[in-house]
Computed example of a mutant assay.
Amino acid sequence: MATQLSPETLLLLTKMTEQLNLQTKTITENITAAVLQKVDEKLQPIIEENKKLKSEGEKLNQKIQNLEKNSRRNNVILHGLPETEEENHEDLNTFVTSTLRRIDVDLEKGDIDRLQRLGKKGDKTDKTRPISLSTTTLQKKSQILKNKQKMKPNSYITQDLPKSVLQAKKNGKNRYKNDNEKRKRSETPSPGNPNKTLNKIQRKDAFQFMRERSYSLSDKNTYRN
């Protein structure tokens, strides 16, 4: 037959159990804190090294972008100029110089540093390959860009910008477009909007509104008297 514990013994066991649980929790927390501290001490040099590498990588990337911009400094891209199957470099040279002459830009042989079609020849796409033109002087490039509005329809000239710059401009345009759309939606009053009347009042001339309000109150007082 099992021995029944007295209330005093049960109370003592309960207290001991609570004390043991508290001690276990304290020990666990202390061990966890010690382990985390050791992990932090081990990770801290790695974190600092990663920050340093990230900073150096950003600086290197900026240098690469600057070099790329400088390499394209005298470049322009001609779009929409037709290409023939038998086109060679001499034909391309003649075609480009004659095209630019029509927009009042005289391009001599000494003005051309590099001239080539962009992309692989014979692609099955319907798009005409653009032409990259690198001039020997920045002055000649500026003259081309100044007269680019004179190009025939369906053909145009742009600057030769790195993809990162083009993407940043595209993102900026999209952000500007989204901001405008949000602003238009916020300015459009919703049906049953209690502020609609207030907005109409605010658009009125303030003095005119006060005069109308004053006349209205005056008429009411006269009616009451």
Rank of each mutant, 00 (worst) to 15 (best):
K63W: 03
N70D: 13
P82I: 02
S55W: 00
N74W: 02
L81T: 06
L81A: 06
L60E: 11
K63E: 12
H79L: 05
E83I: 11
K51W: 11
K52N: 11
K52M: 15
L53D: 15
Q65E: 13
E49P: 11
E49K: 15
S71M: 12
K63Y: 00
L81F: 04
E68N: 07
Q62Y: 03
N66R: 08
L81W: 02
E49W: 12
G57V: 04
L53M: 12
K54F: 02
P82Q: 06
G80R: 04
N66A: 10
E56D: 13
L60R: 14
N61F: 01
K69Q: 04
N61P: 01
G57E: 12
E58P: 00
L78H: 02
Q65L: 12
K52H: 08
G57Q: 10
K54I: 01
K51C: 12
K59F: 03
K63G: 04
E83R: 06
R72A: 07
R72L: 05
L67H: 12
S71E: 15
I77R: 08
L67Y: 15
L53K: 14
K51V: 09
N66L: 08
G57P: 01
L60T: 08
K63S: 08
N75A: 08
L53P: 07
L67A: 13
R72K: 15
N74D: 12
E68G: 01
S55H: 04
L81C: 08
G80P: 04
K59V: 15
H79F: 05
K59G: 08
E58D: 14
S55D: 14
Q65T: 07
K63F: 00
K54G: 13
N75T: 03
P82S: 07
G80Y: 02
N75H: 06
E56A: 15
E49I: 09
E58N: 10
H79T: 06
K52T: 14
N75I: 06
S55G: 06
L60Y: 10
E83M: 12
K51M: 14
S71C: 09
E49A: 15
L67W: 12
K69G: 01
H79A: 02
N61Q: 09
Q62N: 15
N66S: 14
R73T: 01
G80V: 00
P82D: 05
N70H: 13
K59S: 10
G57I: 09
N70L: 09
E68L: 03
N70S: 11
P82Y: 02
Q62M: 09
E56K: 11
Q62T: 07
E68W: 01
K54L: 12
E68M: 02
S71Y: 06
K52E: 12
I64Y: 09
N61I: 00
N61W: 00
H79N: 14
I77Q: 04
R72G: 09
Q62V: 02
R73M: 03
L60G: 11
N66W: 02
K69C: 03
R73H: 05
V76K: 00
L53Q: 13
N50W: 03
N61D: 13
I77F: 03
K69S: 07
R73C: 05
K59A: 13
K52V: 03
H79C: 00
N50L: 07
N70C: 05
E58A: 11
Q65A: 08
N61S: 10
Q65R: 05
K54T: 12
